[in-house]
């Protein structure tokens, strides 16, 4: 596993993501957060691991962890098709824009998220949104659950194979009560 940016030229300056060396670290961060959200991008139906689409892993995780999901692009329809209703859906730009607004009170109107999990956006889009959050929401913790190292996140898994990714997602899900 490597902590080089997945896209070679995606270089950060002085603030780079802490590598998540094992999935339990991600679990601890999620459990510690009081208002986490999970942003799911359009690659959720493009990536396959062990014969399953990424979105299926994410539904398992969301159900287990109760982390509210924001579906970007047309992913809301893909979730609904699979019997899971995300907490919200909006464009990737819109959710990024709300997250840099400290006044925004979250999808439920009860408070600003304190941890943002991102997964499944095109790498370069996710990198840019993470950069926006790094610069303009410095108090917000960000974590990517992709298998690609994202230097602009607060926390990122190193580059990993699809098999390792699937294993990590399964471990994370299993550590929540609903994922047992």
């Amino acid at each position: 596993m490597s902590c080089e940016p997945w896209q070679c030229a995606e270089i950060a300056a002085t603030k780079k993501a802490n590598p998540i060396q094992k999935p339990e670290i991600a679990v601890a961060m999620i459990k510690k957060a009081s208002r986490p959200i999970l942003i799911v991008g359009s690659n959720a139906t493009e990536r396959w691991m062990e014969g399953k689409q990424l979105i299926e892993y994410l539904i398992d995780f969301a159900k287990a962890s109760k982390v509210p999901v924001v579906a970007t692009a047309h992913m809301v329809g893909e979730f609904l098709k699979r019997g899971y209703e995300p907490a919200g859906f909006m464009s990737a730009m819109d959710i990024g824009n709300r997250l840099v607004d400290p006044e925004w009170q979250g999808l439920d109107g009860k408070g600003h998220p304190d941890l943002v999990l991102l997964i499944g956006l095109p790498y370069y889009m996710e990198a840019l949104i993470l950069s926006g959050l790094k610069h303009f929401a410095p108090d917000l913790k960000t974590m990517t659950l992709d298998n690609l190292y994202h230097p602009h996140a607060s926390w990122s898994f190193p580059n990993a194979t699809l098999e390792e990714w699937a294993a990590n997602l399964k471990v994370i899900t299993s550590k929540f009560e609903g994922g047992q």
Partner: peptide, 9 residues
């Protein structure tokens, strides 16, 4: 504007 800096420098 919603900024997503492509470079930190």
């Amino acid at each position: 504007p919603f900024y997503m800096p492509d470079c930190d420098l």
